[in-house]
Design a protein around this nucleic acid. Sequence first.
DNA 1: TAGTGGTCTAGACCACAGC
DNA 2: CTGTGGTCTAGACCACTAG
Lengths: 241, 241
Amino acid sequence: MIATKEATGALHRRIEVELECKIISGEWPPGTRIPPEQELTAVYGCSRMTVNKALSALARAGLIHRRMGAGSFVATPNKIAARIEVRDIASEIRERGMTCHFTVLESAVRRATPSDRRLLSITKGKVLGIDTIYRADETSYALERRLINLEEVPGAADVDFSRQSPGAWLLSHSPWISGEHHISAVAADPETARALGVPEGQACLRVERWVWQTKGMISYAEQIFPAIGGHQIEARFMPTK
Amino acid sequence: MIATKEATGALHRRIEVELECKIISGEWPPGTRIPPEQELTAVYGCSRMTVNKALSALARAGLIHRRMGAGSFVATPNKIAARIEVRDIASEIRERGMTCHFTVLESAVRRATPSDRRLLSITKGKVLGIDTIYRADETSYALERRLINLEEVPGAADVDFSRQSPGAWLLSHSPWISGEHHISAVAADPETARALGVPEGQACLRVERWVWQTKGMISYAEQIFPAIGGHQIEARFMPTK
DNA sequence: TAGTGGTCTAGACCACAGC
DNA sequence: CTGTGGTCTAGACCACTAG
């Protein structure tokens, strides 16, 4: 066994890290052929399964590309994929060390309007519309306009959202979800400006979130953060997953 | 071998998909104990390594949590991790089916000012500052203010950025990078408004990007997209990776 | 102490790529 | 055809957890 440094952990893990270093350092530029598994078993003095585990991990992480019968090659990244973690607004405020209060401005069950149907991609049924103001240390932090599809989540109609925020309830109630975000900037319209207590036309960050489960769309939420609050979304990207 | 349906692919993959379905459908809620590997080998009539491969993949994807000596359990997701793909502005415009023109407003090599040093986390050295306007079909699309650390990327001083955009050159020149984005909303200051041809105070989406390699910070870029252009960032999240 | 996951072996057969 | 990765086996030893 070759041991240039201490054997800190599993061998397959050390092989993975060692190869990863060669790739992200540029020693093996994109397109470089990785030594075949057979050869690596000789280098590391281990079985093929162990080498395979390391190479498979690198392939899953997108650092190499494996072609059956041909070999393994360092991948050529053409786009940057960043990862953002979107938390519930209430827990986000608390993580910043501030106290969070939220007030439900409006909460009403209604038959889906044309606008509701478009946002939730449904053709009929009832929806629950909830408008909530979030305050961080008594300062307006965000306005959330949310639609919940009662056909998919009938229990939502009976929840007291003055105690638990809609976002937190939905996450705890149906944990495994898929969805999509759209992040954009908007100028505060009169109604939004009044609700948030900011000047009309104020630059705001808008996050729209569609959430669905295997069956269908669960919820749509539009969150408006005035730029005054300094709200920002952080996203990190790394060559290794 | 048990085959309730067609054996479409690798067995370890089918096991993984089957267990994943039980989790994201809610049949196995968070905290549920997964049958031990030993038991699954009996269920699927295969060796332990095959079951292990499926469970390891689920663990890596974050769907289950494995504790040595204790067992495997369905994970409790507490935050939503979304994935955004940030492309070069020029290629982004072209993907929208528009033609892209960019104009370098200013390009100058200078000794790092205090502001440069703070943004690039350096204490000395020279930087290249480039301000670029991107137009989509003759309409202002974005303003980019970029700093390149010439200590890390000395070759940047000799590139003709009127032909290739700085972002595209950097990506092709040093492919394996790490970094961070901050996404926020800002009101256009007078200088930005003039450069983009929009009213002062216009709501804009701002994307800041720090990029580094193993050694140190390579570049800082601030991109301003006026809300008028309808620019938005899309992010998708899924329970399975 | 018994059960569980983490790791590893030394083979094996197959599908596919490239010569 | 040979070399490659994709998959799988039937064991094994260890570290750790829980009762």
